[in-house]
Amino acid sequence: MLRIQFSDYEALREHGRQTYPHECCGVLLGRSVDGVNEVEEIVEAGNTRTDSAHNRYNIAPVELIRIQRQARAKSLDIVGFYHSHPDHPAQWSATDIAEAHWLGCSYVITKVADGKPDVTNSFLLRGTGEEDKFFEDEPIEILVAVGASK
């Protein structure tokens, strides 16, 4: 399961709107507890695939290292990633599974239809390695802070 604050959930969907018609991408920081990836913070990242940003994304390793360092300073881990599918379903693609290597992490995908965030789904990358990895549909629990304004 992926557990995320409503504000972070909305922020990652909003990121998809901002970058439309290009794919957005970012990192989910938090903790993995008893099989639940709990998100404490999301970090927007740049999409380096400027050659094909409408249907591809890539986060520069050096940016990931910076984000990982930032996480470590807060005693957080990288627990997942998010990206958008402009005018495509919020389902993982052949490219997504081929290029997914963070076993145990959540991969969140938002369909952005005509510039508006639509369906958001999460997929947990499972398996023991490249040979047997697979995506599993993952429920998203969205937390609303008590006293938060509507």
Partner: peptide
């Protein structure tokens, strides 16, 4: 030394 698997993908 930092080991960092790549992060990439896309809708097609």
């Amino acid at each position: 030394l930092t080991i960092i698997p790549s992060i990439a993908g896309g809708c097609r």
